[in-house]
Design a binder for these strands. Structure first.
Length: 243
DNA sequence: CCTATTTGACCGTA
DNA sequence: TACGGTCAAATAGG
C-alpha cells in the first residue's frame, strides 16, 4: 500500500541519484576557515541551501551535513554541497560542492557575485579560469586550488572582490599535505551576508563535520574535476555579467 | 499557515 | 555487513 509505494519511489530515486548523469555533475571542494567558532553562523556562500541530512562519519569527530539547493523542486536545481568541520581545527570547514546552480537565485536584489565560487574550475576561457589553479590531482587525488590567485584581468575588480567574499580563506589541499596555504588571507573572511534575496535566509551552519584522512582520500577518488563545459556555458549564458 | 531543520530509518555501494 | 548518502515524518520557527 502506501508504504510499499513509498518504497518503490525511494528506490527509483536512489537509482536516479546513482545514475551516470548524476555522477557527471561537476564536483569540487574547498576549505573555508572562519575567524572564530561563533562566526560559523554565516558560513554562507550566497546560495540558499536546504539541509537534508546529517551523518556521523567514521572516525570523524564531527558529523557531516548535507545540503541541496532550496530550489531543487521549484527550479530543478540540483546543486548540492556537504560541509564538514575538521576535528583538529574547528575553524576549518571542508566544503564539497556538487553540480552548478541552474536556478536563478536571488540574482537581482542580492549580490550574485557569490555565484562565482560555485563554478567548478574551468580551464580555458580567458577570464574565469584564472581563479583556479590547474586542478592538479596528486596521489591522494585531491586538488590543489589556489585561493586568490585570479588575476581578474578582463573583469572589474568588483567581481574579484566578490569572489573573495565567499571564498575567504579558501584553500584546498591534499589530504596528506599540511595545508601550507591555509594561513593567508583567511583571517578576515567578510561574509558581507547576502542580501536576503531569497526567502528565509540560510544562515544556518551550526553543524558541520569533518572527515578522516581515509574518508577524504576515498572521496577524492571520486572527485574527477570534470569541466562540464555545457553546464558552465549555460551558466555563463545566464549570468554574462559576472565574468 | 507555511517553510526549514531534525532525526532515524532506509538503500546502494564497497 | 558497515559506511555514507538520502528520504520523509515529526518538529521547530516565523
Amino acid at each position: 500500500m502506501a508504504a510499499e509505494m513509498e518504497r518503490r519511489r525511494r528506490r527509483r530515486l536512489a537509482q536516479w541519484s546513482g545514475a551516470a548523469s548524476w555522477k557527471t555533475l561537476p564536483k569540487w571542494s574547498k576549505q573555508v576557515r572562519v575567524s572564530s567558532v561563533q562566526d560559523i553562523g554565516p558560513l554562507d556562500d550566497g546560495f540558499s541551501w536546504r539541509k537534508y541530512g546529517q551523518k556521523d562519519i567514521l572516525g570523524a569527530k564531527y558529523p557531516r551535513a548535507y545540503f541541496r539547493c532550496t530550489h531543487r523542486h521549484t527550479q530543478g536545481c540540483h546543486a548540492s554541497k556537504q560541509v564538514q568541520r575538521a576535528d583538529a581545527d574547528p575553524l576549518l570547514f571542508d566544503v564539497v560542492y556538487q553540480g552548478n546552480h541552474t536556478c536563478l537565485q536571488s540574482r537581482s536584489t542580492s549580490r550574485p557575485a557569490a555565484e562565482q565560487q560555485q563554478q567548478p574550475p574551468h580551464e580555458q576561457n580567458g577570464g574565469v579560469s584564472v581563479a583556479f589553479i590547474k586542478p592538479a590531482k596528486d596521489e591522494a587525488g585531491l586538488v590543489h586550488e589556489a585561493p586568490f590567485s585570479f588575476n581578474s584581468t578582463a573583469h572589474d575588480g568588483g567581481a574579484a572582490g566578490a569572489l573573495l567574499h565567499g571564498g575567504c580563506g579558501v584553500v584546498t589541499t591534499a589530504a596528506s599535505m599540511p595545508s601550507p596555504f591555509v594561513s593567508m588571507a583567511t583571517s578576515d573572511c567578510v561574509y558581507d551576508q547576502l542580501g536576503g534575496g531569497s526567502m528565509a535566509g540560510v544562515r544556518n551552519v551550526p553543524d558541520v563535520e569533518f572527515a578522516t584522512e581515509a574518508a577524504k582520500s576515498s572521496m577524492a577518488d571520486d572527485i574527477d574535476f570534470i569541466f562540464s563545459l555545457d553546464d558552465d556555458a549555460d551558466f555563463l549564458d545566464k549570468y554574462p555579467g559576472y565574468f
